[in-house]
Design a protein around this nucleic acid. Structure first.
Lengths: 139, 139
DNA sequence: CCATATAGTTCGTTAATCAAAGTAATAATC
DNA sequence: GATTATTACTTTGATTAACGAACTATATGG
């Protein structure tokens, strides 16, 4: 006894699962770990942010994040910078190589997005964007 | 110099990140591990499937999956069943408690979907569903 | 048949994670 | 403005997840 909303819900979950699986496959080929690519992705999209905020976004404790950021600093992908007003806080930001990595990864996403919406009209793509924007705002 | 398609791409990634973060938060509260909930979710949506296929969907090796399924069998969430025609293969399926767990988790997703689209008209929700269906088909 | 490929398991090792304890800075209370 | 509580981050020890390679069993194709 499935209604329209169940279908929408399951379509969203299916999309999420497929994207998740795609992401893992893509990451496996590029030498970096999934959490690290995840961090690069978030910093690339949102800009520098505090450890706490970043940990929240990827869903790990700050302890876990500290270890990951240590590795990424060593690998030259990110750097730690002092927070201007709150000296307890630290801002994590992409280095130039980190930014390059983000852009390359983003290109793959862009290609996927293009492929998935290849049969969409301009108007449909615009509407899809509007839907996502409204949903993200609500999230 | 961002165009429309870049925005759509980034809106999709943002949605994915938020959903991913939401999923982690939800899972953390219910006592089971993320991979296990993930498996329940996939089996609930797609029905019984072979180890190989399931491993592909969640993006791990079959070796990793064997260990997880062992735990889940012990926990009473899934069971192993012989494949009818291929005796090398094994079908993994949800037990009744596993199905219950799926349905409860699915309810949370449903609530989220409802919340996120609360300002959508009926027609917009229908169109959104159509978009996701077409994208998932292409994926 | 025999060789090769495929599905799943086992096992040793590495990576990721958490929780708890520790440090330092800020905010709140009195 | 001194004290207490809270917040941000790090460190550490233990647990869990993951990979890859070796192994068993079945299937497939000369």
């Amino acid at each position: 006894m499935k209604n329209q909303d169940d279908h929408l819900n399951h379509a969203i979950i299916e999309f999420y699962e497929k994207l998740s699986s795609w992401e893992m496959a893509v990451v496996k080929d590029n030498g970096f770990s999934l959490p690290q690519v995840h961090i690069v992705e978030i910093l690339g999209l949102n800009g520098p942010m505090r450890m706490k905020e970043l940990a929240g976004k990827i869903g790990v404790t700050t302890g876990t994040l500290t270890v990951q950021i240590d590795k990424m600093v060593k690998a030259g992908l990110v750097l730690r910078r002092a927070h201007e007003t709150d000296r307890r806080s630290i801002l994590v930001e992409l280095t130039d190589p980190g930014q390059v990595m983000f852009e390359e990864h983003d290109k793959l996403h862009m290609q996927l997005t293009t492929d998935l919406t290849v049969q969409f009209s301009e108007a449909e793509r615009a509407q899809m964007l509007d839907f996502f924007n409204r949903i993200n705002k609500e999230f």
